[in-house]
């Protein structure tokens, strides 16, 4: 488990370490530093790596901190590699792949919590079993937060409190996490004393 994500509550997801598994095919989705987890995963397959890569699709998105390790993943020479600038752009392709999935498809997700959470949600919505999905956290700890008031999602939240990018309220970031929204919850911090907003602290990097 990652020390930088410790000490939180029971709705918070826990992440593991990606391990090669037998499967009819392999789907790897990563962002930012998550590329390193994919490279390590393939290395861990040893002699089976070539066979695994011949049945692997990779979708990669640069991290919210700007980290772009596309070259490392492209160099793996997987059966297919696709790079998108953000999750929304990758999503239609990901959903198509998930919808076309055969029994036995193995899914590997690595990188930030926002990427892992959204891809996991899309995999479950497509009807894939939890047991087929592995996750590994790497890279930026910025959060994807849903404003409980206006329901708008703010991506890549770095500070606590922060200003909702939709309604403008000052929100504090709870550890309470919804897999369905793939987001943490943001709640108005100065509701009881409007205007009394503590200074923003950089909690997520």
């Amino acid at each position: 488990m990652n020390s930088e994500l410790e000490g939180t509550i029971r709705s918070r997801p826990v992440y593991g370490t990606l391990e090669p598994r037998e499967g009819s095919g392999h789907l790897m989705v990563a962002d930012g530093e998550g590329a390193g987890a994919i490279v390590d995963l393939v290395a861990g397959a040893g002699a089976g790596a070539a066979d695994m890569l011949a049945r692997t699709q990779i979708i990669y998105i640069p991290g919210p901190n700007g980290t772009d390790q596309s070259d490392r993943l492209r160099a793996l020479n997987a059966w297919s590699f696709f790079r998108a600038n953000d999750y929304a752009t990758a999503q239609p392709r990901l959903r198509k792949v998930l919808g076309d999935a055969h029994m036995g498809l193995q899914i590997y997700l690595s990188g930030t919590e926002g990427l892992i959470g959204q891809a996991q949600r899309d995999a479950i919505e497509a009807g894939l079993p939890h047991s087929a999905v592995q996750t590994e956290f790497r890279g930026s700890t910025v959060r994807r937060v849903q404003c409980v008031h206006c329901k708008g999602i703010t991506e890549n939240v770095r500070t606590d409190p922060f200003k909702c990018s939709h309604c403008g309220l000052n929100l504090f970031v709870r550890d309470h996490y919804s897999r369905r929204h793939a987001a943490f919850q943001g709640v108005n911090i100065d509701a009881e004393d409007p205007g009394h907003v503590p200074p923003a602290v950089e909690r997520f990097k």
């Binding site: 029971r10 709705s11 409980v148 996490y177 919804s178 897999r179 919850q185």
Partner: peptide, 16 residues
């Protein structure tokens, strides 16, 4: 919030 908690397991929705 039901909208936030819907779909959660027992320990998840009691997490806070």
């Amino acid at each position: 919030s039901l909208d936030f908690d819907i779909g959660m397991g027992f320990h998840e929705w009691h997490a806070p």
